[in-house]
Amino acid sequence: MEPSVQYLLHLADCPLILGQRLGEWCGHGPVLEQDIAMTNISLDLIGQARLLYQHIASLLDQNTDEDKLAMLRYEHEYLNFLLVEQPNHNFGHTIVRQFFYDAFNLLQYERLSQHKDETLKSIAVKTLKEIKYHYRYSSEWVIRLGDGTETSHEFVQTAVNDLWKYTGEMFQLATYEKALLSDQSAIDVTTLKPLWDEKISSIFHQAGVNLPGEEVFLFGGKEGRHSEHLGYILTELQYMQRTYPSMKW
């Protein structure tokens, strides 16, 4: 597969899987407002994934479409971060996962909104408006929970310690990204790391949350090597399409 297509799949798979994860909160949120907020963010993310899958389908110009790309691939063909497939656990854990991703995504989409692929650029310009609100939401909740009660602080600190190992992957180049760097068809994500560090440090400082000092990271999601969680997500996500092929709502 062309590196440019793999890159777009990577960009699409992250919001799809995170959107699916957030959707699990539907009807289970700690309070109604946050239940609605998380599922609204889920909607945005799935909408963003759709725009990207539509773009990929138009490039491939074969017998494929956005639904087939989202619903009929196998685990190793998904190129999302390990971070986004991690389980929700509790609200604090979900918020920290979201915050790590949103802070990265904000920086990434600021760059993508200057991309030379006009369609990708349009998608980025459009969705950046939504990503800003996602970041605002998750960063405010990190502060509120981190600086809240002893219990809420504990939840956030535990989530930060637990999820930290998945953050390094966001700043490591996959094979397809390396291939696209020379003509700037992919963002050099390694350059986003110091900006991201700065962003999250300032929020964690306000939240009274400590960053883990160690730099031991897990990699592989962007290359299709996933944690066991992705299989379970896909089982649920793809159930209807696999059971009733080509079904439509």
């Binding site: 407002e33 907020a37 609204n40 963010i41 605002r136 939401y137 405010e140």
Partner: peptide, 27 residues
């Protein structure tokens, strides 16, 4: 205020309003 603030309450017209949640019935 990146998402701005409501000019007035649609019910009584007061300008004294507070944010409850960044997301409502739709995104």
């Amino acid at each position: 205020h990146d998402f701005g603030i409501p000019k007035q309450c649609p019910q009584c017209g007061s300008t004294d309003t507070s944010l409850i949640s960044a997301y409502g019935s739709t995104p």
